[in-house]
Amino acid sequence: MHRFANPARFLKIARPLTGWLFWPGLLLLIAGAACGLWLTPADYLQGDTVRILYIHVPAAWLGMGGWTGIALAALMQLVWRHPLAGVAGRAIAAPGALFTAICLATGSIWGRPTWGTWWEWDGRMTSMLVLFFLYLGYIALANASARQGQAAGQGGVSTVTAIFGLVGAVNIPIINRSVVWWNSLHQGPSITLRGSSIDGSLLWPLGLTLLGFTLWFAAIVLMRMRAILAQNKVEARMQRLARG
């Protein structure tokens, strides 16, 4: 990984990769959403509201996957002092928080017609809301340390921020197992190692939207990393000029 420690080398790969991830991702997620809206049959019990599945599940995956990325970046920053790790962590935070919010919003919209409620404090919903607040905390900490010019060599992510990112990862397995450990209103996992309890005729667009949103998310992270690197370059030059 330290091959990419040099920002110039990283950018040489990241520049063309951004478009190669963004457009196929966008195409796939739009195609998957369209298939999920018009081609799949309605659910026997829920009817057409089941179509929210095709965006709710990728949103949950990206919200949780995003924090896993922040935790891995924090580990790379704290242990290996990788210069791009902090940049990556900061780049993931905003889209990760957005998709956690989208997961909560679509879940709420789905809950009203199926369960009969917009919101209940059950294990799954509460732990997902905690994840959203963790994102807000991480963003606030990272912004503060970046603004104060601390940790300039770590992409603006201070050690405290990185530790916060690492510690917050405890919530991820809790979200995942919440419907198994506790009685909850949210149903249990549909897709497990044993197979899927979603019939194949309803399942297939989910693969498209999952892959599409994931590629798109990676492209957004690259864009934000490139922005941070360019901003750092400008700031470093300004400081050198100021010092004369």
Binding site: R51, I52, I55, A59, A105, T106
Partner: peptide
Amino acid sequence: QWAFVVAAYGVTAAG
């Protein structure tokens, strides 16, 4: 039911 579906997809598309 479609009102809920459209609302959910709309929120996601906007985001």
